[in-house]
Design a binder for these strands. Structure first.
Lengths: 237, 237
DNA sequence: TTGAGAGATTGGTACTGTCCAATACGACAC
DNA sequence: GTGTCGTATTGGACAGTACCAATCTCTCAA
């Protein structure tokens, strides 16, 4: 269907060839890959850049390019809850708790770049993994941008719904992660003892133009969830 | 001193010009930047790639390149505790708790790719920010790679010491973040009530060749610390 | 006033070619 | 053996060019 760019197709091909190679296995040289796949070396480098960014390979000048060992995690990607759970080999589910229109308020208004008195659509869901509670999720969307959402089916993937029905593509998200003590209501819903700790994630989803589209607060059970990601040294300043 | 690559120098120049521009301000076109700075468009794109990756700008085909609004956070970078605190405008400090050689054990051996019976140097420190406890940090280093570390001054930046004295450059790190309930000893040291929650970060530091160099467990006070980062949609598979 | 369409503008993709810098390796001297 | 020094190899950096695809803008007709 979608015509892929050469560097993207090459990236996928290289990734496929790598999957069952042991760590530190050298890839062919950039020049070899180029002639072998009939593309320019620039294109090869573009594909390798992406793989390196994703943590799939590492490069050493003068030595070569090698498949990276997976120590604990793949690089962090923006995923919906459903995708996230499936990646962890659990079956995602949802139970709708609340859905309706409310005032944005200071906090959410700030996140979504709206007036505190503006209306937002709020959806509260208990998310399940393999049938058991995993987290409490509260999504806030500007009412103006999602007319008629109240009538939609809110049991499935919200990201998919936003994309297909409203053309809202969330490309980037900014997240703040904290540890919190769970309150009474939260503990009950999550089926953990009162006073247990939880992982609190505040996320603002942004579209291609970095405009805020969605603000979500998620409260994960500490005993069932962790966040894994890789970080890199970045040049000073 | 260090001769910088053109794309890196350009990146810094563009970043400097952007700092006090309001969000969504358009940058000059790539072709303009190229002629203006006397470099090829390739080089400009390389510089912009880095800025985009860091969350400083966003690009829209057909429209232009714009400075990105800082919603909550800059992109996550690999930083030492000292750098991290200074970025948060707090004064970092440390109190040495324990330092010595121990057996690696299953867990640490696994992280550092060592035999469980191999020796590692372990450093336990209470880290302070503006004089008050911020986190408990336990660093594990393969003894074989850091001879004579016991005699070194462990009050300052460990990363700096590793780099300058042993040539160990930590370029990448993989992290796992969890929420935990603090135990008695931990609460006392961190000066918070027993049973309070904490943010638990397990990190494995890797060198340029993705070889594990350091394994660190950090336990942050939940009331003083959060983790902020940006995530992007990545192409499927 | 509004909508549709043509054309210019801007970032995205791709190729060719050239030189540099770090690394690896083998020859050689000791 | 052991270290040293050239040389080939490999990734990194740039320049220049050409064309494509998304977007914006301006014109013109209804």
């Amino acid at each position: 269907m979608a015509k892929l760019a050469k560097h993207e197709e090459l990236r996928q091909r290289l990734l496929a060839e790598m999957t069952d190679a042991p760590p530190h296995t050298p890839l062919p040289t950039e020049r070899e890959i180029a002639t072998e796949h009939g593309v320019s070396r620039n294109t090869v480098r573009q594909a390798l850049d992406a793989l390196e960014q994703a943590g799939g390979v590492y490069r050493v000048q003068g030595a070569g390019t090698f498949v990276a060992p997976a120590v604990v995690s793949k690089s962090l990607a923006l995923t919906s809850f459903s995708e996230d759970m499936r990646a962890r080999e659990m079956e995602p589910g949802a139970r709708l708790l609340t859905a309706g229109t409310v005032r944005a308020g200071r906090r959410i208004g700030d996140f979504l770049d709206l007036d505190p008195k503006a209306e937002v659509f709020r959806i509260g869901r208990l998310r399940l993994a393999d049938g058991a509670p995993m987290c409490l999720e509260t999504v806030h969307l500007p009412t103006a941008r999602v007319p008629g959402l109240a009538e939609a089916d809110l049991d499935g993937s919200l990201y998919q719904l936003l994309s297909e029905r409203y053309g809202l593509e969330i490309v980037t998200a900014e997240q703040v992660v904290r540890a919190v003590d769970l309150g009474e209501t939260e503990s009950t819903l999550l089926e953990v003892p009162v006073g247990a700790s939880g992982l609190h994630v505040q996320r603002v989803g942004l579209d291609r133009r970095e405009r805020p589209v969605e603000a979500t607060t998620t409260l994960y059970r500490a005993d069932r969830y962790d966040i894994r990601f890789a970080v890199r040294r970045t040049p000073a300043s």
